[in-house]
Structures are given as structure tokens and as C-alpha cells.
Amino acid sequence: MTSPTLTIAKKEYRDSARNALFITLAGFMVLLTAVSILVASFSFQAEVAQYNAALSQLTATQRAGAVIPAPSYYPLLMLRGTIEYLEIIGAVLAIVLGYLAIAKEKGSNTSRLLLTRPVSRAALIGGKVLGTSLLILTLLALLEGFIILSITAIGHVAFSSPELLKLTLSFSYTYFYLLFFFCFSAALTLFFKDLPRALLLSFALWLVFVLIIPQIGDTMDPDNQVPGGFFASMHTTQDQQHAIIAQFQNYENFRNALEVSSIEKHYERLVFATLGIKGMYNDKSLGYIMGDKWPDLALLLAFYIAGVGAAFLFASNKRIMASSP
């Protein structure tokens, strides 16, 4: 006999995997990945073309001694767009899935059938969370497979095993990130009797966590306020710039504090470092990257635990059954 949690998880998985919703979602995520890889490869191609043009110009002007660095190809760097999509769109889709998982039960009276079984509520919610976890992991495995195949095909270079490890690790971070949003919107949908209000608020909080806060680093950067850069237009030296910024430390601290409160920022820092998209971590060992980025991993996991915890906390009989048409 299997445990009730496992039974519920299996059913959730089977029900969703067969549902047109999941198939559409999976197809769409593959499409997004394909678009971002395609765009990355065309951008790289343009870069190479530019390099070749510059090189032939140099050769033509007989300045062969001058060296310009050739653009180097790192397959993992092609994934910047894909990761950004998972960050932004993945979170939206996880929110929609979380909302639907609860709205589906609330709208029908299958929840009454479930709640009259000899199963604890913890097992019930645990089953839902586990089932969704399996579903998200399947989706991520599918995407990873697609990425490996398409980048190998486009670049004609196979991934090295450290690269594969880094990729897999990044996708497991993605699981924690996405499940946070799933649980978060499921918890809100459990909490509010009015379903649309829950969805609207989930989207609003998505805006805050995924957009407003992470963007603050850029939009509130004084240097970004003028096209071409504030300091460049003032013709200051680097040292002068640092001295001036040092006078506005409170403002900078405020910007940083806001950034820290967003799960997205931690996810991004962690994955960009792991994949080497953040230049200083390119080609560094995993140990080195983890040594630097463990606080981001810890905070990502803390957000994940808080999300799952909220789903458990808000799951009372009354809330599961309460519904508005």
C-alpha cells in the first residue's frame, strides 16, 4: 500500500500531464527556449561578422600588429535569454498553475470527496506539492534536454561534463524558484474566497518581486538617468566618481536592501554565476562559485520553504471548500 501523499501526488501528476494545459505549457516553454537560443546564436553570428570585418579592415590597412580579441564561444552563455524567460515568464506560468490547482478544487466538490477520506490535510497538501514538483521537474528536464540537443546542433560543440553539471544545477535552482511562485499563488487562492482577487494579487506581487524590485538596481542607478551615462557626460574620472557615490551611501544601501528582498534577484545571481553569464564566474569551478554564492542559495531555499509553508498554513477545510462562482 502506498502512502496517501504519494497517491495524491501521482494523481496530480497524471491528471495534469494529460491535461491540454500542461502540454500547451510545455510546448510554449520549448518555443521560448528555441527563440532565445536562436536569437543568441544570430547575435553571436553578428558579433563574429563584425569581428571579421574589423579584422579584414585592419589587415587591409596593414596594421597586422594590432590585436583585437576574437569573440569566444561558450555554449552556456547562449542561455542568458532562456534563464531570463524562466525568471519572468516561468514565474507567471507557475502563478497561473498554482491558481488553477486550487480554483479547480474550489469550484467543484471533489474537494468534499477528498476531505472525507482518512487522510490528514498535511498529506493532502503534501501530495499536491509533490505532484506539482514532479510536473515542474519533468518540464525542466524536457527543456534541459532540448537545450543540450539544440546548442550542440547549432554550435557543433558538445557540452563538457562540468558544463552539463552546471546546467543541471541551474535547472534545479529553477525548480525551487518556480515552486515558490506556485505555492505562493496557491496559498493566496486558498486564502481569498474571491478567486479573481487572489489571481490579481498574485500578479501584483509578481510585479513587485520579479519586476519592480530587481529593476530598481537599474532604474534607480543615478548613472543610468542620462543617455550615455551621467558620469560620462560630466567627464569625471573613476576615482572622482567613487568619491562622489560614497557621499550617497544611504541611497545605495536602500537600493541594495530592496534588491535583497526579491527571490528573483537571488535566483538570477546564483544561476548567472553558475552558468558563467556573469563574466567574473566564467570558467570558474563550481566550488569557487558556491563559495561566493551560498548566501543567494540559502535565501532562495528560504523563500521556497516559506512558500510551501504558506500553502500548508492556509489549507483549512473551510478555505478549500469555500468558493465563489
Binding site: 521560448l32 535569454g81 531570463e84 515568464i89 507567471v92 537599474d218
Partner: peptide
């Protein structure tokens, strides 16, 4: 998603996050 992300990315080559930066 298509209107806000995919189409602009395909026609400018910009990554999704840079498409969302009001400054640039």
C-alpha cells in the same frame, strides 16, 4: 508573452530583461 517578449526579442535581438528596462 508573445506580444511583450517574443516579438520584440525576435525583432531587436535584445534579451528579455533588457526589454523591460525603461531607461534603455
Amino acid at each position: 508573452i508573445a506580444v511583450v517578449f517574443i516579438l520584440p526579442e525576435l525583432s531587436t535581438g535584445q534579451n528579455p530583461v533588457s526589454l523591460l528596462n525603461p531607461v534603455t
